[in-house]
Amino acid sequence: MICDSEEVAAKLTLQGVTKTYRAARGSVDALREVSLQITEGQFVCLVGPSGCGKTTLLNIVAGLDEPTGGNVLVDGCPIAGPGRDRMVMFQEPALFPWLNVLDNVLFGLRLKPNLGRRERREVAEFYLQLVGLQKFARADVHELSGGMKQRVALARALAPNPRVLLMDEPFAALDALTREQLYGDIQRIWKERRKTILFVTHNIREAACLGDRVLLFSAHPGQIREEFLIELPRPRDINSVHLAEHSARITRALKRHLTTETEAAA
């Protein structure tokens, strides 16, 4: 088994991942027995209402959070904490304000062994170009707009060439117009760089626009309820009618699950 074949998109496997929080009144299952297989280079969206545990799941895959039970495997090898093979893009850009744009992208590269100074720079500049911000390499973070910041965060996550990209509602705080541009960008970049992507969102249309598969998640306990295959040609336009059909289907399913959930609780 090859565990650190770098540069190639990886297969991501979740086996019975469970996360239990101890609360004042008993324990809460944030995740119960979540199993999932994502093949190399697949774009998978995890969609569900807020508080359903989807971010917890992403954090566990990132290695930032420990599961109570179960395993996360990258190409068959269990993960141990955060790793360069899985990079994360958060809802906030989380860029470092004491570094300029280029140095932010270089941060992860500097931690990657076997890279020369010139090589690192070339890589960083390549990814800044990929997100269309090569002219802003020397800019300070606070000079950028929200959309530009997320672009830098994307370049920073891509630069160390991870095998899996984990995205936690990265576009949620952006305005609709900027978001549309970024849908185009992320599809183009995914096609060029072929990453395995796990994308968490509460926006169903966004999930249908981006994902090969959309997994519907709901809480109490946090589990995958239904899966949808989106077989539409790419690049997809968020406003297309075909997309609307898919997102309507997913929305109906979500509503159904929410009602049964409320009935069960009552």
Partner: peptide, 12 residues
């Protein structure tokens, strides 16, 4: 805390 978390994912 997001700064330290982001740094950890990059191998810091």
């Amino acid at each position: 805390p997001i700064f330290a978390r982001a740094a950890r994912t990059m191998g810091s």
